[in-house]
């Protein structure tokens, strides 16, 4: 995935079954963000990979004051990339089983 400066990782091991997964997001390189970034640490949240949209979570982070509006896109993309990887891994596990 592209280096967006925002890192998203699984906050717990993926059992491959739950639609709701725990993710952890933090800023690795604030120079890649357009807006002013307040260093608030790692943000942990649950995400439903079947029903939720990464950009929606990014928007909620903006509304909560974690990121500037101009960075909603980059945050959404970072979550989207990680979710795509998790889905890909799950599909691969299913097809190899």
């Amino acid at each position: 995935a592209e280096d967006t400066g925002v890192r998203v990782e699984l906050a717990e091991e993926d059992d491959g079954r739950k639609a709701s997964i725990a993710l952890k997001l933090w800023v690795e390189d604030s120079r890649k963000l357009k807006g002013k970034y307040k260093d608030s640490g790692a943000i942990e949240f649950t995400f439903d990979i079947e029903r939720e949209v990464p950009e929606g979570v990014a928007q909620e982070m903006v509304e909560s004051g974690f990121f500037h509006e101009s960075d909603a896109k980059i945050v959404g993309k970072s979550i989207r990339d990680r979710v795509a990887l998790i889905k890909w891994r799950r599909e691969r596990t299913v097809s190899s089983a």
Partner: peptide
């Protein structure tokens, strides 16, 4: 541990905790 919780108007919970130094890129 200094984790804090933020609940959004949509009901989502964000748990904020410090990032370990080792996980940060050198700036």
């Amino acid at each position: 541990n200094t984790a804090t919780q933020v609940v959004t108007s949509a009901g989502r919970r964000f748990i904020v905790s410090p990032v370990p130094e080792s996980r940060l890129k050198e700036q």
